[in-house]
């Protein structure tokens, strides 16, 4: 297996021009995610990490620099970069399975294949019993599972997660983190996730980009020493605790 850069961010800067002043949100950001990797962008609120993810998703243009997927230039949004938002992104008038089917319909998959894929995703995400429910009938954790299933539907090259568990309670959040790890193992999808939660970043990712603010830039890159098959016990590993303290200090400074 040859590791190659699935996603590459080269010298990305972003300036928001307001009426009175312009704000530099990102400056000279370089980063990459290898094929099949799970990487986190960690930073305090307002450091521009969500802006960076939007740029990668093609929802926001860069002021300078470029984003490449498999060495192809990103110029706009597309189904190759599935995205999950913090909340409010499910279509409330569609049932769970119709929400998941949305991207497949857009991609004009034939009906039989669509049904097969939706069923497969309902299985992976343990959502079968909710297939016919409307989003408003689901809890926050379930809704995010549907959002992840929907984003995975058209088999994206990269899955982009924008603080997907930020609005969940602690217990549900832990559950969803384990869930995400199992989905990652099963599907082998390349995942880039934005979070402000230090433990979440260490627990999930193989590599962490720490973003510092004003303007947002990469202040540290940290390789997480645990293998892919980690369980909750890893949170008691002394290296986990050291890393947590180290990253905590980085975020404060």
């Amino acid at each position: 297996m040859t590791l190659h850069k699935k996603l590459e961010v080269r010298g990305v800067s972003k300036t928001f021009t307001g009426r009175k002043a312009s704000i530099a949100a990102l400056e000279g950001v370089d980063m990459h995610v290898d094929h099949g990797e799970l990487v986190c962008l960690l930073g305090a609120s307002g450091c521009g990490k969500s802006t960076l993810l939007s740029i990668i998703g093609g929802l926001e243009p860069t002021t300078e620099g470029e984003v490449r997927i498999d060495d192809e230039l990103v110029i706009g949004p597309g189904a190759d970069r599935g995205m999950v938002f913090q909340a409010y992104s499910l279509f409330p008038w569609l049932s769970v399975s119709r929400n998941i089917e949305f991207g497949l319909e857009v991609a004009r998959w034939p009906k039989a294949r669509r049904r097969e894929r939706v069923d497969e995703l309902l299985g992976i995400m343990s959502l079968r019993e909710f297939a016919g429910s409307l989003p408003r009938e689901l809890s926050g954790g379930l809704r995010q599972r549907v959002a992840i299933a929907r984003a995975l539907g058209p088999e994206p090259d990269v899955l982009l997660l924008d603080e997907p568990f930020g609005a969940l309670d602690a217990e549900t959040k832990r559950h969803m983190q384990d869930f995400l790890l199992s989905v990652w193992h099963r599907t082998g999808t390349t995942i880039l996730m934005v979070t402000h939660d230090v433990e979440e970043a260490i627990y999930l990712s193989q590599r962490i980009y720490v973003l510092a603010s004003r303007p947002g830039h990469v202040s540290a890159v940290i390789d997480v020493p645990f293998g892919a098959n980690r369980g909750p016990t890893v949170k008691r590993d002394p290296r986990f605790l050291d890393l947590r303290d180290e990253l905590g200090d980085l975020l404060v400074s």
């Binding site: 597309g78 189904a79 599935g82 992104s89 279509f91 857009v106 991609a107 984003a151 539907g153 058209p154």
Partner: peptide
């Protein structure tokens, strides 16, 4: 219409 819904549709290829 919430921006998140439009963005979700865009990133699903719409």
């Amino acid at each position: 219409v919430p921006r998140e819904m439009l963005n979700a549709a865009y990133t699903l290829g719409a």
